[in-house]
C-alpha cells in the first residue's frame, strides 16, 4: 500500500475536451471542458445518461482516444506528449476495468495468460515469482488457482469481471478507472463485485474513477459524485449531498427518476421537457436550456460554468435555489416528453 501527502491528487484532469468531426465541418462535443482530481483511497463517481460523455472521459484519460484539448496530469506530469511506448509505462500507474467482461477478455487466452501478460510486460519476475503473484491475485479477487487454467467462456459473468479487476490491479497501479463495471451483471452478483472493489481499494489505497449510470450503485460506492450532461459536469459534490440535496435541475430530474426497490415509495419526479438535445455544435448556452423547468432568459444566452455553492459542492446553474419549487406539483403526464 502506497502512502501520499494529504489531499494529494494523483491524477488531475483539466479542461478536457473531445470533439468528433461528424462531417460538413460540424463537430460532436463529446466532452466539453471537464475538470476533476482523483485522490488515493477515494472514489469519484461520474454519473450520466447515454450521450453524456462519461465513458469518453475515461478513454481520453488513458488515451485510447486522443483528447482534442485540455490536459491529464499524473503525478505532476502531463500524459499528452507521451508516445505510445512511454504511455505503455504510464499504464503501471493508470489502469482500467471495462464494462463488459465478455468482451474485454481475449477469448483465446486462459485466465493465466490474461493475468501473466501485464506482469511480463512491466515487471521482470522469474516464473516462480510470477506464479506466486498469480495465485495471490486470484485469491485477492475471490477466486481459486483452479480458475487459472480456464478460458473466459468457462467462467460466469461475475467471475469474468473478477478477472478483469485482477488484471487491472496485477501491476499495482495507483489509479483505476472503472467503466460501468457492474452494468452487465445480475443484481445478486453486482453487490459482490462492488464489495470486492471496495475491499481492494482499502487494501491498496487506490484512487477510483467510477463511471456509472446506476445511481443505486453510485450512492453505495462513491465519496464524491460528478453529474455529467452532454459533455459537461453540471454538478459535483459529496455523495450524500448530491443524493439528498441535488441542486441542478438535471441532477434532480435524474435522481427523481431512479427507481427504488421499496414498496410504497412514491417518487416526486422533476420532468424535463422533450428529449436530450444534440451534442453537435451546441450553442453557447446552458446545455439544459429548452428542457429546464426553471429556465430563465439568460440560460439560452451564455454557458453556465460550474460555480461553488459551498466548500465541496459546485453547481452549473445560477438558479439552483429555485430547483425545489419545480418539483412540487407534478407536471400532468400528457406533457411528459
Amino acid at each position: 500500500m502506497k502512502t501520499y501527502p494529504a489531499n494529494y491528487p494523483i491524477v488531475q484532469v483539466r479542461g478536457l475536451k473531445k470533439l468528433f468531426p461528424v462531417g460538413g465541418g460540424r463537430k460532436l462535443h463529446a466532452i466539453d471542458g471537464v475538470d476533476f482530481d482523483l485522490q488515493p483511497g477515494r472514489t469519484l463517481a461520474l454519473v450520466g445518461e447515454s450521450g453524456s460523455g462519461k465513458s469518453t472521459v475515461a478513454r481520453c484519460i488513458v488515451r485510447l482516444l486522443e483528447p482534442t484539448d485540455g490536459d491529464v496530469v499524473v503525478h505532476g506530469n502531463s500524459v499528452r506528449p507521451l508516445n505510445p511506448v512511454r504511455m505503455a509505462t504510464m499504464y503501471r500507474t493508470l489502469q482500467m476495468v471495462f464494462q463488459d467482461p465478455n468482451a474485454s477478455l481475449n477469448p483465446r487466452m486462459t485466465v493465466r495468460k490474461v493475468l501473466e501478460e501485464p506482469l511480463k510486460l512491466h515487471l521482470s519476475m522469474t516464473q516462480d515469482e510470477r506464479n506466486a503473484r498469480l495465485s495471490e491475485l486470484v485469491t485477492l479477487v475471490g477466486l481459486g488457482e483452479e480458475h487459472l487454467a480456464r478460458y473466459p467462456h468457462e467462467l460466469s459473468g461475475g467471475q469474468r469481471q473478477r478477472i478483469g479487476i485482477a488484471r487491472a490491479i496485477s501491476i499495482n497501479p495507483e489509479v483505476v478507472l472503472l467503466d460501468e463495471p457492474t452494468a452487465s451483471l445480475d443484481v445478486s452478483v453486482r453487490g459482490q463485485i462492488l464489495d470486492l472493489l471496495k475491499r481492494i481499494q482499502r487494501e491498496l489505497n487506490l484512487a477510483y474513477l467510477f463511471i456509472s449510470h446506476d445511481l443505486q450503485v453510485v450512492r453505495h460506492v462513491a465519496d464524491e459524485v460528478a453529474v455529467m450532461y452532454l459533455g459537461q459536469i453540471v454538478e459535483r459534490g459529496p455523495t450524500a449531498e448530491i443524493f439528498d440535496n441535488p441542486r441542478h435541475p438535471y441532477t434532480r430530474a435524474l435522481m427523481s427518476a431512479a427507481p427504488v426497490a421499496r414498496y410504497g415509495v412514491k417518487r416526486e419526479r422533476l420532468r424535463l421537457a422533450g428529449e436530450i438535445s444534440t451534442p453537435v455544435d451546441p450553442p453557447p448556452a446552458c446545455r439544459l436550456s429548452g428542457r429546464c423547468p426553471i429556465e430563465q432568459p439568460v440560460c439560452s444566452q451564455q454557458r453556465m460554468p460550474l460555480e461553488p455553492i459551498n466548500e465541496t459542492h459546485s453547481v452549473a446553474c445560477p438558479f439552483s435555489d429555485r430547483v425545489a419549487e419545480a418539483v412540487a406539483p407534478p407536471v400532468p403526464a400528457a406533457k411528459a416528453g
Binding site: A88, L121, A168
Partner: peptide, 8 residues
C-alpha cells in the same frame, strides 16, 4: 483496448 492498457 484492454490489451493496450496492460502495456502492449
Amino acid at each position: 483496448e484492454a490489451a493496450r492498457l496492460v502495456g502492449n
